[in-house]
Design a protein around this nucleic acid. Sequence first.
DNA 1: TTGTACGCGTTATCAA
DNA 2: TTGATAACGCGTACAA
Lengths: 347, 347
Amino acid sequence: MSTRRATINDVAREAGVSPSTASVVFSGKTPTSEATRARVLAAAESLGYTGPDPRAASLRRGRSGIVGVVFDQHLGTAFLDPVTTHMMDGLADGVSRLGAALLLLRDDGVTVSEPSLHTAPIDAAVLIGCSPRMRDSLEIVRGRGIPVVVVEGDAGDGIPRVLLDNADAQRAAARHLADLGHDDVVIVTLPVDTGRRRGWLAADAVIGVDVTADRLRGAREVFPDAPALAAATSSIDEGAIAGRTIFAERRPTAVLAQSDLLAAGVIRAAEEAGLRVPQDVSVTGFDGVVVDGLAPHVLTTLVQPATAKGRAAGEAVAAMLEETVPSGLDLECTFRAGTTTGPPRST
Amino acid sequence: MSTRRATINDVAREAGVSPSTASVVFSGKTPTSEATRARVLAAAESLGYTGPDPRAASLRRGRSGIVGVVFDQHLGTAFLDPVTTHMMDGLADGVSRLGAALLLLRDDGVTVSEPSLHTAPIDAAVLIGCSPRMRDSLEIVRGRGIPVVVVEGDAGDGIPRVLLDNADAQRAAARHLADLGHDDVVIVTLPVDTGRRRGWLAADAVIGVDVTADRLRGAREVFPDAPALAAATSSIDEGAIAGRTIFAERRPTAVLAQSDLLAAGVIRAAEEAGLRVPQDVSVTGFDGVVVDGLAPHVLTTLVQPATAKGRAAGEAVAAMLEETVPSGLDLECTFRAGTTTGPPRST
DNA sequence: TTGTACGCGTTATCAA
DNA sequence: TTGATAACGCGTACAA
């Protein structure tokens, strides 16, 4: 009874074959005679050998079978958003053709914990929600020569990215409001930077988060002068905070929120303020997720293909690993009219 | 311009030092003179060397810095439950002292994709929700000699597991109902097996999922003859399905659901059936998660420390890796009285 | 503080 | 169908 775990060498010796033959028996890469195969398996069994050491195999192969998923926020926070969980689901699906598993990584810029982006044994990486800080993550990964796909963010120079038609979609919602007759509209935006500061956006504000910028641009194409209030994150509570701020100061006929969760919060704030939706104020969201607790309202929103987004990212990663050019990265949102928008109240 | 990436050897040669010195510069395990250090770093820079190859390092070290988290269901499904996401959050926290990252693994018994439990380069594993199928996963992992911690499941012989006082807690809720005067109670359970079949449970039904069995046991200690209806998963929709089944057949004065999501669904079904909560029927949940959309109700439930559960699992894993005996694995739920329970209607 | 030498466990390649 | 050989890239005793 040795203290050390058996290796494939031990098994080979025990079975009376060469290590390479034993290896082949486990990998199945080359046909082997039934007899040797049986002998090797028996030897493994008797030695308690349970298969090749993944670390050694991945060193030799140059592949670990692991795809890193990089978040720029606390996991708990990220997973609170249904869009993220659906995307993870699709991502798991998308990389499965690669036979890869997902490694959860967080890049908050300060943590030095290992394995970080610098040291994780990943074959590829998917960056979620490219905030400015993500650029650093990107540099690290690219420096390591690892294929990267960015979801919803600008990565610059030729890095594949999965994109929604954010501006177009948001413009559609804005137009919907305009068609109904609205012209006093306030926009509630997703975070504008890593600092996640709340507050009214100056006209010349620099927006570091692309999703936010794109959706804002789409809305402003229809309502060039609409004031915009930034939320600290995408959640019902944040939406409610934003809503309270808005209704304390003004009475717009419509609020255009950049996410369903924010919209739900705005609706809550509106009702707190004694406003009826949509009679007194119309509200639109973005994402098309199921927001529990919104009943009986059905949110007017843009439905984004969250699962498909993840799957597209996964497949893009798979393609890059196979040295192919990824495709199918541009996805479209669908406008869905609900019960939270209607004609503006007559003044 | 070579086609191959630079190794630490190349860097050492370029810097005019030995490979071991270069290695030490990167790991910081041994003091080095400022001069050599600078030289090595410069050499690395000029060769585009971004640090030790994680695969080689982990082979050498015998550690990968990765902890596997094994689910027995689709990731999307698992993450739909707030309890799971909170637990993941805690888990990420708990293993962080180890400096480890989390690898998402799924064991559905059929997938042959790699890396599976057999081949993933993990230092330890956390099994979530030990259904019968999980026993197989367990065998695989143990066979590989990898430390395992089980969350909410019976792993048998000396495998550390993070446990809630499910039976006790559920008994407290049942007693609460009994004290109010209820005696016509129906129980809605979590899945009873991997097949996730719905339906009334026979008195002698074998329950393969421990959480389900424990909570049921606690309830039956107070209401020995209460009929139990199994749901296919823990969700509001499943709760509603169960609720509809119940109210179509009978009019219990109280329904004891094994999760908050199920309870929310039951409440929805009750209201559909024209029953008021709690006047016509009381409902209790389990978990203490925030269920959006339940307002104005506040669920009477057992609050479980979901984040703490994850953290405990993470710390247990860390302990095992350090050859210590894990502790702090038993966690308690807290009874929280809400507005969904009251005295039974007079018959 | 630096260098030498070797092993970690596997698998690709090629020849037999 | 099997076997010999040579990396894969690194970390670390141990000696200098």
